[in-house]
């Protein structure tokens, strides 16, 4: 499955449009990480635990999108966009969407 945030695939032609596909996940951080983050809030610096957590969540959202694309019979998802929003204190939603297409 080809994933790209361009509207075209260089050297290939889009033969069929299958519409919008999307995936999202809402994740909360756990207490241990929150404690570390509390310390980091004093000293400053990168919160590695959060970086990993958000990366994992983004991967999960992308996987969900790809599953949907696969069930539509697509072999590529183009013009992919990511969006992040904090739903409540300590939880974030990661949303990813794109257009499922068939390329030759």
């Amino acid at each position: 499955m080809l994933v790209s945030n361009l509207e075209i695939v260089p050297g290939k032609r889009v033969t069929k449009h299958l519409g919008l596909v999307q995936g999202s996940t809402v994740r909360a951080k756990h207490v241990g990480r929150d404690l570390m983050a509390g310390l980091k809030n004093i000293f400053g610096g990168e919160l590695k635990g959060y970086t990993e957590l958000l990366q994992e969540s983004r991967q999960e959202a992308t996987d969900r999108m790809l599953e949907q694309a696969k069930s539509l019979g697509a072999n590529a998802v183009l013009n992919v966009r990511f969006s992040t929003s904090s739903v409540t204190q300590g939880a974030a939603e990661l949303f990813v969407y794109g257009t499922a297409v068939v390329i030759e």
Binding site: L2, V3, S4, N5, L6, E7, I8, V9, P10, G11, A37, K40, N41, I42, F43, G44, G45, E46, L47, Y50, T51, L54, Q55, R58, V80, F82
Partner: peptide, 24 residues
């Protein structure tokens, strides 16, 4: 839109992220 170039054979989504905290 990338310029048409025969060298662009493969395409792939790449990304990088970081969470940084401000100090007290």
């Amino acid at each position: 839109l990338p310029p048409p170039d025969p060298a662009f054979k493969e395409s792939r989504l790449v990304g990088g992220s970081v969470v940084i905290s401000v100090d007290y």
